[in-house]
């Protein structure tokens, strides 16, 4: 059984079905990709997994436990961290404080719900300042640590969200387009960071339009179109799939 699973996840807004019957399995220690054209329902799926949206149907299980009825903060405490496609940074605070808030909030609940190990330090239990500094350093944010996040370019602000999510030491990390706004070098270092995190045991679910990035870091890929899974498999299998190409480029003229 996979660490995070969804079964028959469905979301209706009024009469429109945004996500329909989605089954995902996200394994620990690996990155899983979720790709698909605009409006396919990827972000809606994320929102249902972390509890921001209540699904119209289906279940979410984490480590075999049904978490479908838990509130967002309870799911976070059980180990689901995420970033947002449309930025949700604490824009009036400094970069460092954004990460610090994450760590402090974790400390406030870790007494009752034990958090996971610090992945970047190979499981060591660092004190808060060291942990924050380590995260800043690994994300290349040291130079801008004291800047207000609201003044950063999008790409760096996304990294701040990633760092903030890491500060709660999640077991599953949902990344919603983390590479958009990053340049090639930054994308490459993001890829190696994801690889390092998964090697340390984290489960990553990655929504990303930069398909080469998804192909390079993910061991399993799901393709979503019109709210349904139209294909899944290893990167190679997905790349050879004609349905996937049609979903991306349209089935019009050829």
């Amino acid at each position: 059984m996979a660490l995070l699973e969804t079964r028959g996840l469905t979301m209706r807004f009024g009469g429109n079905v945004a996500v329909s019957d989605v089954d995902l399995a996200v394994e620990g220690g690996a990155a899983t990709g979720l790709i698909g054209p605009n409006g396919a329902g990827k972000t809606t799926t994320f929102n249902m997994i972390c509890g921001v949206l209540t699904p119209s149907g289906g279940t979410v299980t984490l480590g075999g436990r049904d978490i479908s009825s838990l509130s967002t903060h309870r799911r976070a405490r059980l180990g689901i961290g995420r970033t947002f496609q449309r930025l949700e940074v604490f824009s009036s605070m400094s970069v460092r404080d954004n990460i610090v808030v994450g760590a402090e909030i974790r400390e406030s609940w870790a007494r009752t719900t034990p958090a996971g190990p610090q992945l970047l330090a190979g499981g060591a239990d660092l004190d808060r300042d060291d942990e924050v500094s380590l995260i800043l350093e690994r994300l290349g944010l040291m130079d801008v640590a004291e800047s207000r996040v609201g003044e950063l370019p999008t790409g760096q602000a996304r990294l701040v969200e990633l760092g903030r999510a890491l500060a709660i030491r999640p077991k599953v990390l949902l990344l919603d387009e983390p590479a958009s706004g990053l340049d090639d070098a930054e994308t490459a270092s993001l890829a190696s960071l994801i690889a390092e995190l998964t090697a340390a045991g984290l489960a990553v679910l990655l929504v990303e339009h930069d398909v080469p990035l998804v192909m390079s870091v993910c061991s399993m890929i799901y393709v979503l179109d019109f709210g349904r899974i139209i294909a899944s498999g290893t990167p190679d299998q997905v790349q050879q799939n004609q349905t996937v190409l049609d979903a991306y480029l349209g089935s019009g003229s050829r």
Partner: peptide, 20 residues
């Protein structure tokens, strides 16, 4: 503007690709 590129290429006289 289109994401489904093939759909529109049949109609277009010119195409421009935008990145970043």
């Amino acid at each position: 503007i289109e994401q489904f590129a093939r759909t529109v290429l049949g109609v277009a006289d010119y195409a421009a690709i935008m990145l970043n």
